Amino acid sequence: MKISRINENLLAIKKSENFRSINDLRMLSATRGIDGQGKEYVVFSSNNYLGLTHEKSVMDAARAAVSFGTGSTGSRLTSGASFELSLLEKNIADFKHTESALVFNTGYMTNLGVLYALADKSSVIFSDRLNHASIIDGCRISGAKILIYEHNDMNHLEKLLEQTPVPADGQRFVVTDGVFSMDGDIVDLPSLLNLKAKHDFCLIVDDAHALGVIGKTGRGTAEHFGINGGIDVQIGTLSKALASEGGYAACSNEIRDYLVNKARPFIFSTSLPPMVAAAANQALAVLSDSSKGNALMEKLRENTKLMRSLLEKAGLPIVQGCTPIIPILTGSSQKALNFAKLCRENGIMLSAIRPPSVPEGTSRIRLTVTAAHSQEEIEKSALIMKEIWRKI
């Protein structure tokens, strides 16, 4: 694109109601934040699923690790790896029941790094149509042939697998979200593993919105279905249920070693500082604790069920499901923006999701519930949303 056409393109984005700008928000607690003018909101737009960002033990762990410095100043391969990161990787692998794990700077960079390292121009990647942008971009930069199958459609995937033989010098990959970030639905993992047994491919599952959200103990998609093994690489994030920052790939020792040597986003990125790893490690410890973790998971399920029930009874067009990601379908971008604006005026912070994050004509409000929301916050907010929906 010519730089001289930036203004023209910005005007087109604004005309389509898809222009975005940054709004400051400071979180006072796991569920409440204030903007730059001091207005307070109940926040239903974060991915802080377990509310651990303001858990005392998590904050204390971060404070203690600040004594080792506020930054790492270089990549792990050149400046050394902090003890906290290595411990976190061990604990992630234990939690996910894999041999090993490798931490990246973000979940986005994890998908780019894994797909760039493992796939190449001799590979074929089969990708779900509604996969996250980080997966889409990872597929593109890998140079592999990319085949898109319809969302969660295992029949379509099997047809593509049957039509596309294993490359002579390459590998076939299937990559999918575990919980899809915009619809909140869950991948059909049992059927996917049945296909893997028949058609031989490497399976990569992104559990960013599944860890701490689904499965009896919050271990994600595999535990949700009662499945052990079969997933070659489990991608995840530290920035959602684990209340910190970063991403990880849980995998075999062999794959981890290969990623350390071939994943450019890992090799050439400055390492996360110790306080970030310490916070994530403590959040994982809370989730792993049978008493604390189970209580948080149960509260998250209760809050999700309550909000879904209230919105459904109020007549809002929500996407059915069981996860705390609750899309309210508006269709048009303007309607999504109006709804979010009126909610903000009434002290509720929500996200208006528009193209290109979702396909044209499927704009929505993406409401997320956390374990930290009180029953009063949920009931009061649902009532306000009901009245706003009637107005628009």
Rank of each mutant, 00 (worst) to 15 (best):
V66F: 15
N194H: 02
M59W: 03
L102H: 01
G36N: 13
S271Y: 07
I135G: 00
A222F: 02
N338Q: 14
L311G: 01
G361Q: 12
M1T: 11
R256M: 13
A243V: 13
V358R: 08
M297V: 12
T323Q: 01
C139V: 12
S16T: 01
S122L: 02
F180W: 03
V114E: 00
I34H: 04
R5Q: 12
T304G: 01
S351I: 14
E150G: 02
V205R: 06
S45A: 15
I13T: 09
G178K: 07
D185F: 00
S67H: 10
V66W: 14
D137C: 00
A12L: 10
D183K: 09
L118M: 11
E89P: 12
A314Y: 04
P274R: 05
S357F: 14
Y108I: 08
S332H: 07
I92L: 14
R219M: 10
L87N: 10
S288T: 06
P324S: 02
A336T: 07
V369Q: 04
K292T: 14
F225V: 09
L259D: 06
L157P: 03
H97F: 09
R301A: 10
K145C: 03
E150D: 12
G74T: 05
A119V: 05
A371R: 11
L160P: 02
L284E: 05
R219L: 05
K90M: 10
H151I: 09
L296A: 02
L50S: 07
A371E: 09
S100W: 03
I325T: 08
P167H: 04
G229Q: 12
S332A: 09
A222D: 11
S269M: 08
C202E: 06
V114I: 08
T304L: 00
E40C: 05
P165G: 03
S181D: 06
R32V: 13
A243H: 09
E150L: 07
G230F: 11
R26E: 11
K262L: 06
F83N: 05
N155V: 14
